[in-house]
Design a protein around this nucleic acid. Structure first.
Lengths: 142, 142
DNA sequence: GCTACGATCTGTAGCGACTACAGGAGCAAG
DNA sequence: CTTGCTCCTGTAGTCGCTACAGATCGTAGC
């Protein structure tokens, strides 16, 4: 790692710096999520500090569960866009929050159902396995 | 629907009976999850009551979030396998339950983080959008 | 019989967000 | 000059479907 964190880094350095897989970095470039960097004479990608910041932003967004299209929208917001840009970021985030809450609710229902199945199952005690029995029922309970 | 729910139904009837998409039924057959049915002279699939039960089982498993490979394992258990089969079903289910709980924990952390972002954001009040700022940080908090 | 229409058939491609190669080229050290 | 690493492009695989295209089956009306 010759130039770590300052300028002129190659893809491996960027990967080490941000913790994002090399293949993933190239993928982000291909789908137009990340800005394409300059190339050296040999055709290798040369990244600057701005790329590090952008990729970190993307990685953080992904770790917060934002979809790639959301991130595209966030990156398209003007940096000092003022109120309008903030409103849009807030909108996007709170929509995402709603979705996360919906998933939590769903998973909690699932958890309760699975917990019930497991605790009903005391191997060797029943005639029929209660887990298989409940999975074989006509319809999932509403 | 000529033969509904009894015997000799075609794929459309099976789909209506179970609520599973026709294309999905064929997909399940292709990947070897569902038993392949007999065909009539014209090459059309002809399903019996056992297929309805099996597909309902599969659909219920999916609605409980089991993966296709898990379902394969559950279907491979002998119907009256006694204690050993029950143990395996229980094992599988409780492993799945653990995974569901892990996801809930993760999503709750996400929810808290997003909630914090949204409530910190009062458009027009700050110099910098706190959502974008928190997404631009060096690393996701541990 | 002929025609029209619906249901079904096969095979293939797309989704989202990567990941994993294969096969070739750049580049610095010994 | 060779070794050995990093990097390049392009393509295919993952999971669980879903969505076609284009052909065929089967039935009902005439």
């Amino acid at each position: 790692m010759k130039n770590s964190g300052v300028a002129g880094m190659q893809i491996g350095d960027l990967s080490a710096e941000t913790g994002v897989n090399i293949e993933t970095i190239r993928y982000y470039e291909r789908i137009g999520l990340m800005a394409a960097p300059a190339r050296n004479r040999g055709g290798r990608r040369v990244y600057e500090a701005a790329h590090v910041a952008q990729l970190r932003f993307i990685r953080n967004c992904r770790s917060f569960g934002f979809k790639v299209d959301d991130i595209r929208a966030l990156l398209a917001l003007p940096q000092n866009g003022g109120g309008a840009a903030e409103m849009e970021a807030r909108e996007l985030t709170s929509r995402h929050l709603t979705e996360v809450r919906r998933k939590i609710t769903e998973l909690k229902k699932l958890e309760a159902a699975l917990k019930g199945m497991v605790s009903a199952c005391t191997p060797g005690k029943q005639a029929e396995c209660p887990i298989v029995a409940s999975l074989a029922r006509q319809a999932t309970q509403p």
